[in-house]
Design a binder for these strands. Structure first.
Lengths: 137, 137
DNA sequence: AAGGTATTAAGAATGATTACGATTTACTCA
DNA sequence: TGAGTAAATCGTAATCATTCTTAATACCTT
């Protein structure tokens, strides 16, 4: 997923092309890590001093619905990042300090061996938390 | 973990023995599933009509700190349940409708094969979401 | 039984998120 | 190209879960 793909997806779905949406997408492209709504707002304050909460939250949730962003919840706050890949299923190591991620190709679902026969599975989450090399001290 | 073990743990750590704490623990023993603070509050309102949410939240977080309860975050709300076992590491299938769980013995951390060499790991989360037999429709 | 301390109730405060009415902007199609 | 229309945005108020504050109460030790 990149900015152009995301903009194309917005157009295809009939959503409008606005400078703020483009800048939000570029902000995510430039910051390859999980970020909170507040961080996005802060990061865009320089170009749009009067940007409102509503715009950020509405677009974050729109982008997440469209599969442009992926989300996770860290210490009670939603975090967002550009979706790594649509094709390739994987999980993440997440740095609890800076939000940077590392892809983990191991998916535990393939080795369940019928442990959940008879249950309806709608999703799963596998995340590893810790600190990256830059953030350990 | 059961009610008596939990009460003993509270005493050993110097915490006081109060009827509300005992009833909270019994409420968890009687409801073997993930519940929100609000559900616990509602469930205890019959015996303690004036129970304040502060009491609930304070004790929930105390119990979680002492390892009496385990917690997870589902759709933005903290959920609590009696800790299944101290010895035996495992994960959960969680019913998104009723909060009931099923233990999963597969832990993906053992098959990482050095994918995270050089990273400092502080924790991990593996949960499977869906619906149990009673809640599918 | 009394004193010291932990616990509690009641409500106010916080922080993240959502909702709202008014205004502005982007797209459509004549 | 230029209204018309629907969506997007702003500014702010409302909401929801959770935490904090203060004063009163309950538990435990002696």
């Amino acid at each position: 997923m990149n900015v152009n793909e995301a903009i194309q997806l917005l157009k295809d779905k009939g959503y409008k092309y606005t400078g703020k949406r483009v800048d939000m997408l570029e902000f995510f492209a430039d910051h390859d890590r999980y970020m909170t709504a507040k961080e996005v707002l802060e990061g865009m304050k320089t170009t749009y001093p009067n940007l409102s909460f509503d715009t950020i939250y509405r677009n974050l949730s729109l982008f997440a619905d469209l599969g442009i962003l992926e989300t996770t919840e860290l210490s009670g706050e939603k975090h967002f990042r550009f979706l790594c890949s649509r094709e390739h299923h994987h999980h993440h190591f997440i740095c609890l300090h800076c939000g940077k991620t590392k892809e983990i190709d191991t998916c535990p679902m393939i080795s369940l061996d019928g442990e959940l026969d008879g249950y309806t599975i709608s999703g799963h989450k596998f995340e590893i938390y810790g600190y990256c090399n830059q953030c350990v001290h």
